[in-house]
């Protein structure tokens, strides 16, 4: 009767682990990654590997330097690196991707205390930093096709045309589903993103509230602006699906309450609408998520449910 464990109840636990959840997100992103390589060639794969590798290295090193528990095994750095890569143009020089990963992990995540403590999404913050630093490289969109490496042929993103209020000259909507349009490497193939989203829903990793509210708000707004076809183009363009399914649902930087998720999703949608319709930038998904990230603590406080049996207005 030696060495018995006398930990606190409960003595049973669910099978969920942080690592498994992160692994599920990676699995859900694989279709988008595969389609990125199919559409943009091996340079896209190289960029993804560099981003993931440098994110993992940055995580491991910074934990080591800070003399903190090593957390690289929780796979959250893999998710951040992969998400960042999928948010970049496939033609971006590899070193810029690496720099982005280091910014995401070291500045945005570890400087605030590591996993769970960052108040904005690391991949989104890093993408925005890269966009501000390397505006040219970050907005030069390779035309998708069957290329082996980086053929240097670039063109305008569909959002530029949509900004003018027209869908003329754009590829057919079905091409958007299969990734035949210019854009960041992970955002172009809508079907791959939706498949990943369905996987996350089935695995109960994410709740559908944020993606539905986010995408629904953008769709509704654009419907008023230009009708169904226009709204569908808007939904399938830019980083909306990638952002709504994979970035806005980041646990750490979104509310835990159901009504909080509604406010967060609708808020993201409204800001995206405002930027796309009236802003000077063509795309607003990243900024929308980043801004809403900052409001999360307040949204959460406002929407915490009353404890069971607590009286309205009374003591808690």
């Amino acid at each position: 009767m030696a060495d018995m464990i006398v930990s606190v109840s409960p003595h049973l636990h669910s099978k969920d682990t942080t690592r498994r959840i992160m692994l599920d997100v990676v699995i859900a992103l694989l279709p988008a990654l595969v389609m990125a390589v199919v559409r943009f060639g091996l340079h896209a794969l190289a960029l993804a590997l560099v981003c993931v590798g440098s994110a993992v290295a940055a995580e491991a090193l910074s934990r080591k330097i800070m003399k903190r528990e090593q957390t690289v095994g929780d796979l959250s750095a893999v998710v951040t690196g992969l998400l960042l890569a999928l948010n970049l143009p496939a033609t971006l020089p590899l070193w810029m991707g690496a720099l982005g990963s280091v910014i995401a992990i070291v500045v945005v995540k570890q400087c605030f205390g590591g996993l769970g403590q960052n108040f904005v999404n690391p991949a989104i913050a890093a993408r925005i930093v890269l966009l501000l630093c390397f505006a040219g490289a970050m907005t030069s969109w390779q035309q998708p096709g069957f290329v082996l490496w980086n053929d240097g042929v670039t063109g305008a993103s569909p959002l530029a045309a949509l900004k003018e209020g027209t869908t003329e000259g754009l590829p057919a909507l079905t091409d958007f589903l299969f990734g035949l349009r210019a854009g960041s490497m992970g955002e172009v193939c809508a079907l791959a993103l939706i498949a990943g989203g369905v996987y996350l829903l089935v695995r109960r990793v994410i709740s559908p509230i944020i993606p539905l509210c986010f995408i629904g708000t953008v769709f509704a707004g654009m419907l008023l602006r230009g009708g169904v076809t226009f709204a569908l183009y808007e939904v399938l363009s830019g980083g909306l699906l990638l952002g709504a399914i994979f970035m806005a649902t980041d646990y750490v930087t979104s509310p835990i309450t159901p009504w909080g998720k509604v406010i967060f999703g609708v808020g993201c949608g409204l800001i995206t609408l405002a930027i796309r319709l009236w802003g000077s930038l063509p795309e607003g998904v990243s900024y929308a998520i980043l801004l809403m990230n900052i409001f999360v603590p307040h949204i959460e406080k406002l929407t915490l449910p009353r404890p069971f049996g607590a009286r309205k207005g009374g003591k808690a």
Partner: peptide, 18 residues
Amino acid sequence: HACIRCGRCAAACPMSLA
């Protein structure tokens, strides 16, 4: 490990606590 704010605890709480 560190809390990732997944919200599973709040969803499971029968007393609607967080």
